[in-house]
Simulated assay, not measured.
Amino acid sequence: MRHEQIETNSALMLLLILVVISIGGLVEIVPLFYINETVEKVDGVRPYTPLELRGRDIYIREGCYLCHSQQIRPFRDEWLRYGHYSLAAESQYDHPFQWGSKRTGPDLARVGGKYSNQWHVQHLTSPRSVVPQSIMPNYPWLLATDLDTSDVADRMRALRATGVPYSVTQQEYDANVKKFGKVVADQLDITQATDNLLKQARDQNFDGIPSRVTEMEALVAYLQMLGTLVDFTKYDEGYFTTFR
């Protein structure tokens, strides 16, 4: 009878729907105010360098996240294939995060260092030349297009407004030196963003073209750092030995 009364009384039903939605919203929103307590502290995690950041932007622009997740779940079949399950701290500087919900291709959370730079360049240019069964489209324009570096500092400032510790002042720089070390802190200095981007591209030459900095270079730089920042042997080692 009560169920029938609710269904036949639109005002009451609307009120109850609003109550349920409010409760659900509070359950999701309230924990965010305590995010610093819920994200574990993990050594090695840092913000993206200017070159990696531009690569991530290209990754999002080209829709790579539609087919590749970056979230390894804590299940046996997951870690056997991809490695240690994803830690919340790994995504603390991601806006937006790239966890994903669909895998047409493999998860990329631990792809960094798995293949050479040359393999990534060839795979992105012509996927079936290295993975015959791949259904991934070709991205030849990445190698032909020079990377736009004119707004990299503005992109870093935008992320700084969300809490990513890119530095502008000497005080912020000193804090980054203390937290990440001088080498990383130098890369996080917005005032030197373009110079740092060009230096990393020149020193590591991700695309194999030393005379230019291409979009391919930035994307490969981003892919090659995924999953490489954390020494996972320090975390939950017993969890995995339980299943071996």
Rank of each mutant, 00 (worst) to 15 (best):
I60K: 09
R61N: 11
E62Y: 05
E62A: 06
E62H: 07
C64Q: 01
Y65A: 13
Y65W: 12
Y65F: 14
C67F: 04
C67E: 06
H68L: 13
Q71C: 13
Q71P: 01
I72W: 01
R73W: 14
R73M: 14
R73F: 10
P74M: 03
F75A: 15
R76M: 03
D77G: 01
D77K: 00
E78C: 01
W79R: 07
L80W: 09
Y82S: 06
G83H: 12
G83L: 04
H84R: 07
L87G: 06
A88I: 11
E90Q: 15
E90W: 11
S91M: 12
Q92C: 15
Y93S: 04
P96W: 12
Q98L: 15
Q98S: 07
G100H: 08
S101K: 08
S101N: 09
R103S: 09
R103A: 11
T104C: 02
T104G: 02
T104N: 08
G105E: 10
G105P: 01
P106T: 00
D107K: 00
D107A: 05
D107H: 08
L108R: 01
L108T: 07
V111I: 14
K114M: 10
Q118P: 04
Q118G: 07
W119N: 11
W119A: 05
V121M: 04
V121Q: 06
V121Y: 04
Q122A: 12
H123D: 05
L124K: 00
L124G: 03
P127F: 08
R128H: 10
R128Q: 15
S129W: 12
V131H: 05
P132S: 06
Q133V: 14
Q133S: 13
S134T: 01
S134A: 11
I135D: 07
I135E: 03
I135R: 02
I135N: 00
I135F: 12
P137R: 02
N138S: 04
Y139E: 02
P140A: 05
P140L: 01
P140N: 01
P140W: 03
P140F: 00
W141V: 08
W141G: 00
L142G: 01
L142F: 00
L142P: 05
A144N: 11
T145D: 02
D146P: 12
L147F: 08
L147P: 00
D148A: 09
T149I: 14
T149W: 12
S150D: 13
S150Y: 07
D151I: 06
D151V: 02
D151R: 10
D151G: 07
A153G: 09
A153R: 08
D154W: 08
D154C: 10
R155W: 12
R155V: 09
R155Y: 10
R155M: 10
R157N: 13
A158F: 01
L159N: 09
L159V: 07
L159K: 10
T162H: 11
T162W: 03
G163D: 05
V164F: 05
Y166D: 05
V168C: 04
T169K: 02
Q170S: 15
E172T: 07
Y173P: 04
D174Q: 13
N176Q: 06
V177M: 10
V177Y: 07
K179W: 00
